[in-house]
């Protein structure tokens, strides 16, 4: 019958349609970026609290000296589903930072939990001047502003696995993608650094991490290696949390909603069948 055929047809059509945006990125010159086994990947994924705390330490000690994170508030760091520092820790942390506040005496005051993360530079121009003309991007949603591509037909699977970790995959690859000296034939301008995964390969940021550069705080020491690979996994996870702080509660709600819909659909199917059993159609 035409119906079966057309249902299969419609399914194929919708898959291809839904998948079309991913195809746009085919033909990039950068090598393919591997999917990493993130704890927060897939419908069942959740953040690893210890990893977020480690990632926060990397962000605080290394990244935040150049990169802003203007949308993250200190209070977020103690919210459920995140790094879950205690409120006391967050309060003490916030107080370490000076916040620009026109209402305060002298225009500055110590931070409180409600404040957003202060930017290292007062404006973009100052940030450029301090970084050889390149603007370090804001971290708030950066993990969602980057992505990866898979060759045909693998990207079709992404719609069924809910793959949303392109950003962390890219960040991890980038932090591990420096090649020094640059490969033969690659021209890297003065002040730039060759990176395999950066589009165009000439990255303004010098390699920010090195093995052993950060000693993780008590409780974490010894449990993970102090390597660039580990640092970059931790900071990429932290950045994903920063970009999507309600990921865990969102997925929890998702299971409830879908379970409800399946139950309701089943009941409605029975209702419909019952009604229509009286009609030849």
């Amino acid at each position: 019958m035409i119906k079966t055929k057309s249902i299969i047809g419609a399914l194929l059509v919708s898959i291809l349609f839904a998948a079309a945006p991913a195809m746009a990125q085919e033909g990039h010159a950068t090598p393919e970026i591997k999917k990493e086994p993130w704890s927060f990947a897939g419908p069942f994924g959740t953040y690893d609290r210890n990893q977020l705390q480690r990632g926060f330490q990397v962000f605080k000690e290394v990244c935040s000296s150049c990169h802003s994170a203007r949308l993250m508030a200190f209070r977020n760091l103690s919210e459920p589903g995140g790094p879950e520092f205690t409120e006391g820790q967050v309060k003490a942390l916030a107080a370490e930072y000076e916040i620009t506040d026109p209402d305060a005496e002298g225009g500055k005051r110590p931070g409180i939990a409600a404040d957003r993360w202060p930017s290292p530079f007062t404006n973009d121009q100052e940030a450029r001047d301090a970084n050889g003309g390149a603007l370090p991007p804001d971290f708030s949603v950066l993990a969602k502003a980057r992505g990866t591509t898979q060759p045909f037909p693998w990207w079709i699977l992404n719609y069924f696995t809910a793959y949303s970790e392109g950003g962390p995959d890219y960040i991890h690859a980038l932090l591990n993608g420096y090649v020094d000296p640059p490969p033969e034939g690659a021209e890297v301008p003065e002040g730039k650094h060759y990176n395999t995964y950066f589009p165009g390969h000439a990255l303004g940021m010098a390699p920010p991490l090195s093995d052993g550069a950060i000693t993780y705080e008590e409780g974490e020491s010894g449990s993970v290696p102090l390597t660039v690979d580990q640092y970059s996994r931790d900071v990429a996870s932290f950045m994903m949390w920063m970009a999507e702080p309600h990921l865990v509660s969102r997925k929890e709600a998702g299971f409830q909603v879908i379970a409800f819909l399946v139950l309701f659909a089943g009941l409605m199917y029975l209702v419909k069948r019952k009604l229509w059993s009286r009609v030849e159609h």
Binding site: P21, A145, A162, G254, V257, L261
Partner: peptide, 15 residues
Amino acid sequence: AWFVFFAPDILGHPD
């Protein structure tokens, strides 16, 4: 619901 709860950004573009 699958898209909303499990992949809200997959139909959009990272940029």
